[in-house]
Design a protein around this nucleic acid. Structure first.
Lengths: 224, 224
DNA sequence: CCAGTGCTATAACACTGTTATTGAGTCGAT
DNA sequence: ATCGACTCAATAACAGTGTTATAGCACTGG
């Protein structure tokens, strides 16, 4: 008798599929990607496990939906860091936002980047010719990174950087961010000094862009 | 009747505990950290699952043993890259060896660094005051990295680098290596260009040490 | 030879993802 | 308004998981 087509939950504008996904995100936040039990998820939503199969095709389908949701969340963090009129601020805040996202959503982050490849790669996109990304859902978040790196590089160099130059540096930046954050989440960073170390990485990258270290420190201080 | 105290397997010098661990490594290589089924593991070793409980205390204990084994393997790769008489060569090969290890043992690598913290942190070690490492088994592998970075830094600077300077750079190097390799394993790097991108990261780090780019390229070419 | 100890096979328990079956509910057409 | 067709979820079962209590074997010390 619960969960009729016109139940109170639906009147809130959340249909069953959305509620399942939201609850799954809560579970992945609490217990990590491997902590999702379909029975518990269904019980929390007042339905049975069959709903997950008809709506998402099974657990892998649900995980892939969570995967896409993770990139949507990451994209939102990236947008909040956008400063097209101040390229250095843009890049600095973009890098800090990446870490903030990872620490705010460790479960999703582990699902997206932890361990071995889980999802089939998407078709190549000309804009990311050498920045392979598993699924299309990831494009917007990485476009934001490439744009920030490109803007910062263009601002601190006399001539406009080439596309491959920007992509090379963007991958380096991404690697630096993911490396630090991944180590931190896995427990390899001193909790008292992790932010300081991450700031070192930001300075490292910005210096390579040609930015003045004093300006970088000012941006870091302003960003908190 | 199988696996008596004096079976053929024991005459090979492998007792049951070692055979279980070796088979577990094979399974983790084939199916990843989550692909280990105790019944399958026991069957492959001709025993029952109880042996895993008496010898390792359960699956978490077995995984921790695999975790330690992974760091022993990584340490072996690090040792093979040691060139105390040629600091730049040492650092370059150390970085390449790190990626080689990760790609040769993706399953172990995911267990060691993928996802969230799995094992309790070990007590602080003065040598790695700010390089927190979850378990003691990890120390030798990271000592090799710190030594290589320290040697390279000392060789290209007029005055000897401070301990904290070396640790700062070592963590940056580690982050860069782990970031690239983690992205590559997770499927975010173009397979055709991953090595080239990693070489970029090596050049990036070596330049920060003060090494001559020409020398770095020569070392990269020599290392293959 | 016998008691005691250490280890392992068997069987059961609670849990997991998955699926065949069943039934309730909705929509459209006559 | 009534009937048929369809969609979807609830139930129950199946095979698999990690874990544990029980029981039995082999060895060791006296």
């Amino acid at each position: 008798m619960p969960n009729r087509r016109s139940s109170a939950a639906e009147s809130q504008g959340e249909d069953l599929a959305a509620r399942l996904l939201a609850e799954a995100e809560a579970l992945v936040r609490r217990d990590g990607p491997d902590g999702i039990a379909l029975r518990e998820l269904a019980r929390a939503c007042g339905s049975s496990t069959m709903a997950i199969y008809t709506l998402y095709g099974g657990k892998p389908g649900l995980m892939q939906a969570l995967y896409a949701l993770g990139f949507a969340r990451l994209h939102a963090y990236a947008l909040s860091a956008e400063h097209r009129d101040a390229p250095l601020r843009w890049l600095v805040r973009q890098m800090l936002a990446y870490r903030r996202f990872a620490l705010d959503h460790t479960g999703l982050y582990s699902l997206m980047f932890g361990g071995e490849k889980r999802f089939a790669p998407a078709g190549r996109n000309s804009r990311f010719a050498s920045l392979a990304v598993p699924v299309e859902d990831a494009y917007p978040a990485f476009a934001a990174l490439v744009d920030a790196v490109g803007a910062c590089l263009a601002h601190h160099r006399e001539r406009a950087p080439s596309a491959s130059e920007v992509q090379d540096l963007a991958f380096l930046v991404w690697g630096q961010m993911h490396g630090h954050v991944g180590l931190e989440i896995a427990g390899y960073a001193d909790p008292d000094d992790a932010l300081g170390r991450y700031r070192n990485a930001v300075r490292f990258i910005c210096a390579h862009c040609g930015a003045d270290p004093t300006d970088v420190n000012a941006e870091l201080a302003a960003a908190g």
